[in-house]
Design a binder for these strands. Structure first.
Length: 577
RNA sequence: CGGGGUGUAGCGCAGUUUGGUAGCGCAACUGGUUUGGGACCAGUGGGUCGCGGGUUCAAAUCCUGCCACCCCGACCA
């Protein structure tokens, strides 16, 4: 297509509102436009890229046995009330009413809708397994939309749901999607890592996030350089320190005036912090926010707690746990702020980190002002209501798989796969009959890809100071033919020939025939990130053009025919993986 | 939701301290000269200075309420 006929508007300067490269460059290239905070429109070139990514997703999902459908974005409250999530979802859900006052939401996700479809239509094991997906706008009223398409309130998502007769079959469906996602993100040209993710209060049995590696990502992932282990920082497993074989020494109470922190008490008693026990005091709440009880969690003094793991162990939602009001808690449990220890506490749940029972002769608060015990040992001196591994992983901690040190990197979550189990089928009555006419709940999985977010990730990973560098697979056009003197008929004829011959080979071509100076055209070509540039310039009359890749800074002169062949080969190679 | 910042032409900004009725660069339009990495000259158009209230002879500027946008944090099936 001729650029003089295209609707394209590039910006020389970056809008002040954008701070990360993907946002800045997509705005500058005129690919997206902000409508309001967290809501973006796609302009012609941006929409072409979006459709390319969608089509990669579509092809791979279809190849994996998924079937595409399209449900409504607007969903009735009733379905969410059935699953129990109308109340759970919170302020992120856009809720609206129709003219009669009936409640709806703009779908933030579609488990309810898909489960509803399936329960009405599936009744036999013979109809399973099923994998349905859609590509559609999702709506989440984010507390803080950010970084353009990276975290927006309206975004395009591919969401797939699998329905299986049992866990074993689910495992196959899950692995199938895991492999499919790997192919999709490879084809999008992303450097990514699948990582183990927290399954949270939703109660699924396994989940992986697909994290595109980028400095501007919002997630932190822990990974092992030696083996394949990788997990989000919250779900990464921190290995217990090896059990000690020291003799138990007699418990002794020490006066430790004013030592309210681990650091202070360790210094005062001249102990390493790894020989102390830290207390973390929490209140738990019911759904209405009333205090339901107290939790004292104990962990080695040099460790950090991972509250997500505590929450999961307690089987509550994250809003149901918060640091305690120590004065109130002291009245009930006997704890003493700054001097709390596991010995002598009452009327609260005592959670002990999994490595403490194996450690000997530790120092802990005595539940008495200005006093600590030393030589405290699990079993002899204190016991737990629950033993939980709730340590937060730190960089350098040992890999739970192979023992090598863990490293941290930043990532952007572009996809997620989740074994849901029967949460929704149970709540909504999605059942099938087996060979013996016995009813079972359908076992579900769900699988999401943030399509618009994937665009951000691609640009974050593929750009330079001059602009975007699209991978061939998602580039809005494959080749840009830059005509230096568009008024020169010979040059325009040559450009037309390039366009025609390349198009005939399935290559997508844009011809910059605009009445602009060459510098402007070159700058725009770089900004737009078209993978191949063919310049029709000085030697147009001789049928010689210049061929250059967006990733190179040198061009080569070639006869037109060769340039066509070379570009076509390069594009076909780029599309083949 | 807490903390911070910003709102002046399509984009980037100055002007606000010290009140006097709005300016610069880019972009756009016209004409001319140019033409290989964001040209030059001359001219033109474009603004309820985020919105409301107040002070004042006079408000972009001072006071006040609200709104929007951005950043950090909290949050993120």
């Amino acid at each position: 297509m001729k650029m003089s006929k295209m609707y394209i508007r590039t910006l020389r300067e970056a809008p002040a509102e954008a701070v990360v490269p993907s946002h800045i460059l997509m705005l500058r290239a005129g690919m997206i436009r902000k409508i309001v905070s967290g809501i973006y429109g796609f302009m012609p070139l941006g929409y072409r890229v979006l459709r390319k990514v969608e089509n990669i997703v579509r092809e791979e999902m279809d190849a994996a046995g998924g079937q595409e459908i399209l449900m409504s974005a607007l969903q009735p409250a009733e379905l969410w009330q059935e699953s129990g999530r109308w109340g759970d979802y919170g302020p992120e859900m856009w809720r609206i009413k129709d003219r009669n006052g009936r409640e709806f939401c703009l779908g933030p996700t579609h488990e309810e809708i898909f489960t509803d479809i399936i329960r009405n239509e599936v009744s036999s094991y013979r109809q399973l397994p099923v994998n349905l997906y859609q590509i559609q706008h999702k709506y989440r009223d984010e507390a803080r939309p950010r970084f353009g398409l990276m975290r927006s309130r309206e975004f395009v998502m591919k969401d797939a749901y699998s329905f299986d007769r049992d866990e074993e079959s689910l495992n196959e469906s899950y692995q199938n999607m895991y492999d499919t996602y790997t192919r999709i993100f490879n084809r999008c040209g992303l450097e990514f890592r699948p990582v183990e993710a927290d399954t949270g209060a939703i109660g699924g049995s396994a989940s992986h996030e697909f994290q595109a590696l980028t400095e501007n990502g919002e997630s932190t992932i822990a990974f092992c350089e030696k083996c394949d282990y990788a997990a989000t920082d919250e779900s990464a497993v921190c290995v217990d320190a090896p059990a000690s074989n020291e003799e138990m020494l007699p418990l002794e109470k020490k006066s430790t005036p004013g030592t309210k922190t681990i650091e202070a008490v360790a210094n005062y008693l001249d102990l390493p912090q790894s020989r102390t026990i830290k207390a973390l005091l929490y209140e738990t709440y019911d759904e209405e926010g009333s205090v339901t009880g107290y939790v004292a969690a104990f962990i080695r003094g040099d460790r950090q707690a991972n509250e997500t793991k505590l929450i999961n162990a307690l089987g509550i939602n994250e809003y149901q746990l918060a640091f305690a009001n120590e004065e109130k808690m002291a009245a009930v449990t006997g704890c003493v702020g700054g001097f709390t220890g596991p010995k002598g506490l009452h009327d609260c749940k005592i959670i002990v980190d999994s490595e403490l029972p194996g450690l000997r002769n530790l120092c802990a608060g005595a539940n008495e002002a200005d006093c600590h015990y030393i030589n405290m040992n699990y079993g002899r001196d204190y016991e737990a209501d629950m033993i939980v591994n709730f340590k937060l992983v730190g960089e350098g901690d040992v890999c739970p798989e192979c023992g090598a040190p863990l490293k941290f990197k930043r990532g952007m979550e572009v996809g997620q796969v989740f074994k849901l189990g029967t949460k929704y089928s149970k709540a909504m009555g999605a059942v099938y009959k087996d060979e013996n006419m016995k009813e079972h709940e359908i076992v579900m999985g769900c699988y999401g890809i943030g399509v618009t977010r994937t665009l951000s990730a691609i640009v974050e990973q593929h750009h330079d100071d001059n602009g975007i560098i699209w991978p061939v697979s998602v580039a809005p056009y494959h080749v840009i033919v830059t005509v230096v003197k568009q008024k020169d008929e010979e040059a325009m004829d040559l450009a037309d020939r390039l366009e025609k011959e390349l198009s005939a080979k399935g290559v997508e071509v844009m011809v910059d025939d605009r009445d602009e100076r060459p510098g402007v055209k070159f700058k725009d070509a770089d900004l737009l990130g078209i993978p191949v540039r063919i310049t029709v310039g000085k030697k147009a009359a001789e049928g010689i053009v210049e061929y250059r890749l967006r990733t190179d800074d040198q061009s080569v002169e070639l006869p037109v025919g060769e340039a066509v062949a070379k570009a076509a080969a390069f594009i076909s190679e780029g599309l083949s993986h």
